[in-house]
Write a protein that binds this DNA or RNA. Structure first.
Lengths: 242, 242
DNA sequence: CGGCCCGTTGATAAAACTCAAACGACGTGG
DNA sequence: CCACGTCGTTTGAGTTTTATCAACGGGCCG
């Protein structure tokens, strides 16, 4: 597919993603670059937000993976979504919003303050599109958990990650870094890690995926998408923007 | 259309809900009443929005129940959320947003155009809170589907409905109208109607609920909430607002 | 070397699904 | 007013999917 290329060829993944959500111009990109320039890096397992606590300021993921999670009193854990480079955390139009979920770093993660939108309508538009995509993916996730079986869930989630990482330019030859344990995957998909393991092995045997050493390859994403009935999300009728 | 006490004891459920999300004043309430005054009524099973189509204008549910749904190619169906009186449909900050889900009427439903917020910051705040609650409930739903068993799912969802209907003043003595079939419930909870039926019977025997003729009563909501580990959502640190 | 994390395997149990049928309530048309 | 069809609930029997418990192995790091 051909994306508009308002900017150069190899920008920062986070910038690359935002530039694909709205046709950013150099001034907008400069705002993003300035924000990215002073990011903080957090170690694996640290919390970027805690459910029920007041939200600090909105932030942008520069690199690394995080996840939104709900922790149950008895120790059960449910991941609600994954946060990838270029994703925004904690946007809200409310006066004093509370975090609806805990956010935890799955790898070392670099985040920065979300670049301000008051001087940049295009950036504001990118945020709006991003937010709409977030919601669409949440709805996808509900459908996944409610109506797909284990193999379909795994395939569908991996296809989503493929799709999203591609936006940030982090996919090469249908392969990408997947810094998740099978247990993490299980906690996202409402399964046990044992069962995820067995299903992944099946999928390997069927040639649906390759997964070794933290790198995942989907040899034929389109075929897999057809197999599990997945269609990429669309969020806006505007000419640009997914 | 002209209610004796706009903010008194027995207002329109939709207005009542909004007035609880932000401290509306008579001028704001008048906006809501004006909007509610020319609502349209749609019959059970009609669609208020279709996934992938452009969204018309935002709307407010005046009375009746609707649901957001995803329909799978093979006929499977997943309800994403229920829309109750006072809920808003299709809010978005995007230029040309597409509906992320189909919205279908579960009963005859009256909706009206969402009262405009440009002249009413408090109404805008109520919308923002409402939107935050919507998201929080989506996250709850994900957790429900991913990590709760059948009985916990049913209890948790019924407690949510109790909580939300209460906001609109539609709960009396812990009982409320529940115009859902067991099959609809099943499609919301990722279960089959047969299994929902068996679990509901268990819960009846255990005295956790009464459900006859479209009316549901939770004899002890607090105890049930404790039993399934549910805590009511909180969305804002502001003094008013859930 | 030792420990830990992660992936893997096996055996068994529990939860939920499928298929099929029957029943009651309700509304409609004859 | 009754027969009939539809829709939703209920029940039973048998199957499938997924969870649970337990153990082992490889790789990596201190």
């Amino acid at each position: 597919m051909s994306w508009p290329k308002p900017l150069g060829n190899l920008p920062q993944p986070a910038l690359r993603r935002l530039a694909r959500l709205a046709p950013l111009r150099p001034a907008d990109a400069a705002l993003v670059e300035a924000a990215v320039a002073d990011g903080r890096t957090l170690r694996t397992r640290s919390e970027l937000a805690s459910e029920g606590q007041e939200i600090a300021e909105p932030r942008l993921v520069v690199s690394g993976w995080a996840a939104r999670a709900r922790l149950l009193a008895d120790g059960r854990r449910q991941f609600l979504s994954f946060l990838l480079p270029g994703d925004l955390i904690g946007l809200s139009r409310q006066p004093r919003p509370l975090a609806a979920s805990t956010v935890v770093a799955l790898t070392d993660v670099t985040v920065c303050a979300a670049p301000p939108t008051h001087a940049s309508p295009l950036l504001a538009e990118a945020y709006a599109v991003s937010q709409a995509m977030d919601e669409a993916y949440l709805l996808d996730h509900i459908t996944r958990l409610g109506r797909l079986n284990a193999q379909e869930r795994i395939s569908d989630l991996l296809l989503e990650l493929h799709e999203r990482l591609d936006l940030a330019g982090l996919v090469a030859h249908d392969g990408f870094e997947l810094p998740l344990t099978q247990e993490t995957l299980a906690d996202a998909l409402g399964l046990t890690s044992v069962h995820v393991n067995r299903m992944v092995q099946l999928m390997r045997r069927d040639g649906d995926l390759q997964w070794r050493g933290g790198r995942l390859t989907l040899p034929d994403p389109a075929a897999l998408a057809r197999k599990v009935g997945r269609t990429p999300i669309r969020v806006s009728a505007a000419p640009h923007a997914g």
